[in-house]
């Protein structure tokens, strides 16, 4: 029996779009409902996040599993609270420790844009200045229902994702991707190559 020529294994858009649609659906469906979440709680919004995780609102029913032991085992990071310039390097580092595919929800006015501290000398004007954000949840602080809504928007996004797009080298928010697009009056999502 002679040698069989096998293609070199590679990661990228060349191979993955060939994955059949039903398999893609299944993969996305699985990832959509097992989001291990890493809570980057920095201020009062973290309390609302905790309220969302408790029995009253109970986001485990949406497949969001709180209290990942470390960012290395998390799929989703929720930045809830005021990001300061001192804290920013830590957020970036922990984001980089998360394995792909990874998602970020910016929860609350402070992590969206600086919030009431927009003019402070020490507050970062939005966590999207240091890491890419998938869903912004507005509010000061937002109600737990708003976070549930944000999670559902993220799940919709994952459901329509093509895995090939995860490794799309096009920079986030570039003209090719159409930049930021508003898909809902209260929630803006940045396409990450979906």
């Amino acid at each position: 029996m002679g040698l069989i020529s096998l293609p070199d294994p590679k990661v990228g858009p060349g191979l993955l779009p060939q994955v059949p649609e039903p398999v893609k659906f299944l993969l996305n469906w699985g990832r959509q409902y097992s989001l291990w979440v890493f809570n980057f709680g920095l201020a009062c919004c973290a309390i609302e996040f905790i309220a969302t995780s408790m029995s009253g609102h109970d986001f485990i029913r949406l497949g969001v599993i709180p209290f990942a032991p470390s960012p290395r085992q998390a799929d989703l990071m929720v930045v809830s609270g005021t990001v300061t310039d001192k804290m920013a390097p830590a957020i970036q580092r922990l984001y980089e420790q998360m394995p792909e595919p990874k998602y970020v929800i910016s929860f609350g006015a402070c992590s969206n844009c600086g919030g009431p501290y927009w003019d402070s000398y020490c507050v970062t004007k939005g966590v999207d200045q240091i890491i890419p954000v998938d869903v912004y949840v507005p509010g000061c602080p937002p109600r737990p229902e708003a976070l549930l809504h944000g999670i559902m928007r993220l799940q919709e996004k994952i459901a329509h994702e093509s895995r090939g797009g995860q490794w799309d080298p096009t920079p986030i928010g570039s003209a090719e991707q159409g930049g930021q697009e508003a898909v809902y009056p209260s929630v803006v999502r940045v396409p990450r190559g979906a």
Partner: peptide, 24 residues
């Protein structure tokens, strides 16, 4: 103690310029 490394200026002095307020 609190300011990030490389921060220039003394932010609680009243003559400290808040750049965000100047820009917006």
């Amino acid at each position: 103690l609190l300011l990030p490394e490389g921060f220039e200026g003394t932010p609680l002095r009243k003559d400290f310029v808040l750049a965000s307020r100047v820009a917006k």
